[in-house]
Design a protein around this nucleic acid. Structure first.
Length: 554
RNA sequence: CCGCCCAUAGCUCAAUUGGAUAGAGCAACGGACUUCUAAUCCGUAGGUUGGAGGUUCGAGUCCUCCUGGGCGGGCCA
């Protein structure tokens, strides 16, 4: 609808230029169609006249007047008003809204889809937690946002792939294997000193116990160096399968699992560095190899290979992102914890070094989750084994509520996750408000069936009977859904969906209290059942984008 | 010392990307179940958008400075 109006205005303008009513000038893309907050300002508003005023050197209200007269009857508007400093306010007829219900009904689960993404290929990389311990709550936030974003982008016409980057090399891996080895020895009654750089969580003990059960004392006499690889692999496999299980349960889907190890084994990192060296972007200093990221906007150069010959994490990331680019995506979305923000300029620098516009990469920084329990902040550290796992929260709070909490905030705002509140007072969570709306509509249809009503065919229902202000308002909001999805996709802000659904649910609850879907008048009942059906479609489609279930009863 | 992010109702958060009189939920107070689910609805109250300037038709949103909070600034990841 917004596009239709915008186009109509632009055509009216061109028409007026031809008639020499206006001097010829480009139409700036900055003129927008918006939905006014005040109903008296119409269904849609345009700021066209105000945007053009300074360019055309004409008073905005005069421009608006010309546009209105040129628009004439080109669209079936109820009326067009000029208001305030020069807003064009468009009022749409009730008939239009009523008929739109059939349109939504026909589209069904596809309603909300658009071609805004124009089939562009997007890679969304998220979670990417090191396989050194189970996922904790903070990872959950990234998982929920990333997964929902993928769903939203798909809906908006992008070709989307989701990817998990596995940091399965480096010192941390050795420390992990060592930690299990030590716990293994401990399981046989040996006293061991547990170093600070080892992982102290109970899950390490569980893995060690598993090794003991399966292999007995086979490794007891062996030196750490002899069996480190075994213990490391064992630990990674076990932890990682746990991570995958948690994600599955959290309804988070990944198309690709990308192992950092493969970058090393294939020699891609070395080759990438070689290539950069040939282009003079790598130099040696104090025994290490440095990448001139400062030539591409970073504040200083960065080491890619340490003086001990070991590649840095950044080196792998350069190769990884280059490899992503070569896979041919139009857009790369990386979702990181906000504590990695200092890392953004150097990765963007790498991308520029490969001749790509840095805007091909969008980094979403997810603020850390503060966990509150007993009114106190809980410290979280994987290494110290102090953390609340995602699984724990899922089990206590539920997948739907947890996802909704994460998706009802902009990701760059700090999030206080109050465990006690989420566990004991989960009724306060707005997710139930939305789900309840869906369940209520299901219940209406159960009752309708008992009373001998079915959802009528399209030609059976007289939608013009739906003329109550509340009904018209609902129809308007229903029609916003595709635009909300589009906005959420283009701005990478899945939280918009949650707010939209809360508003729609609120309108339903209000309507439900005041009117009855099933009444004495069969014609009115039929029409309202169509409305109920369409609201249900939109609620369900929206909840699907959040990865939250639409229950039939509660 | 330098850089990035945040600051909106008592609390948790929105605000269509610069639009018109800043909105929801929770908490507080007062009402509504004989009718499709009260996990709901109606009403009351709650604000100098951290502070000061600036840009313009118009600023919570943009620019500068200040205050307060978070996070970074390693040949760690």
């Amino acid at each position: 609808m917004k596009r239709r109006i915008k186009k109509a205005i632009e055509e009216a303008y061109k028409e007026l230029v031809k008639k020499k009513r206006f001097p010829d000038d480009d139409v700036p893309s900055s003129h927008l169609i918006s939905i006014p907050k005040q109903e008296q300002h119409g269904d849609y508003a345009s700021n066209f006249a105000m945007v053009m005023a300074s360019r055309l050197k004409m008073p905005p209200r005069k421009i608006a007047q010309e546009i209105v007269s040129a628009l004439g009857d080109s669209l079936d508007f109820e009326k067009i008003e000029i208001a305030g400093p020069g807003f064009l306010n468009f009022f749409i007829s009730d008939t239009f809204w009523q008929n739109s219900l059939n349109n939504i009904r026909d589209l069904g689960e596809h309603f909300g889809s658009s071609d805004a993404g124009a089939g562009k290929r997007v890679l969304v990389e998220f979670v990417s937690a090191n396989p050194t311990g189970p996922l904790h709550v903070g990872h959950g936030r990234g998982a929920a946002v990333g997964d929902s974003l993928c769903r939203v982008l798909k809906k908006a016409g992008f070709q989307v792939e989701s990817e998990y980057y596995i940091n399965d090399v480096g010192n941390q891996m050795n420390n992990l294997g060592k930690s299990v080895y030590l716990r293994y020895k401990e399981a046989f009654g040996e006293r061991v000193d547990f170093p600070d750089d080892c992982y102290k969580g109970d899950y390490i003990k569980d893995i060690a116990e598993g090794v003991k059960r399966e292999f007995g004392d086979e490794f007891l006499k062996k030196d750490l160096s002899e069996c480190l690889d075994f213990f490391t692999k064992r630990a990674v496999d076990e932890i990682f399968s746990g991570i995958k299980e948690d994600l599955r349960e959290f309804r988070v889907n990944f198309d690709n699992w990308f192992s950092e190890r493969t970058l090393h084994e294939s020699g891609l990192i070395e080759r990438t560095i070689e290539e950069l060296k040939e282009r003079g972007l790598i130099y040696e200093k104090e025994g290490a190899l440095w990448f001139k990221t400062s030539e591409f906007g970073d504040e200083k150069d960065r080491v890619v290979k340490r003086s001990n010959g070991i590649l840095t994490y950044f080196a792998a990331d350069i190769a990884y992102h280059r490899q992503k680019i070569q896979r041919g995506y139009d857009l790369l979305v990386d979702i990181w914890g906000a504590d990695h923000h200092g890392y953004v300029p150097r990765v963007k620098a790498a991308i520029k070094a490969f001749g790509k516009d840095e805007d091909i990469l969008k980094v979403l920084l997810i603020q850390l989750v503060n966990l509150i329990e007993g009114g106190k902040l809980k410290a979280m550290s994987t290494r110290a084994g102090e953390f609340v796992t995602l699984r724990e929260v899922i089990d206590d709070v539920g997948v739907d509520a947890t996802r909704f909490i994460f998706l009802t905030r902009k990701c760059d705002s700090h999030l206080d996750f109050d465990l006690d509140l989420a566990k004991t007072q989960s009724q306060e969570n707005p997710v139930y408000y939305v789900q309840y709306a869906h369940a209520r509509l299901e219940s209406v249809f159960r009752m309708a069936k008992d009373r001998g009503f079915e959802l009528p065919n399209k030609d059976e229902a007289d939608l013009s009977l739906l003329n109550a202000p509340e009904e018209i308002k609902i129809m308007k909001v229903l029609n916003q859904f595709p635009e909300v999805v589009e906005g959420a996709a283009l701005n990478l802000e899945p939280h918009r969906i949650s707010y939209y659904l809360t508003e729609l649910a609120g309108l339903l609850h209000k309507y439900y209290t005041r009117y009855r879907f099933i009444g004495d008048d069969p014609l009115l009942t039929k029409a309202r059942l169509v409305l109920a059906h369409v609201i249900k479609i939109v609620l369900k489609n929206g909840l699907e984008l959040l990865g939250v279930e639409a229950p039939e009863r509660m």
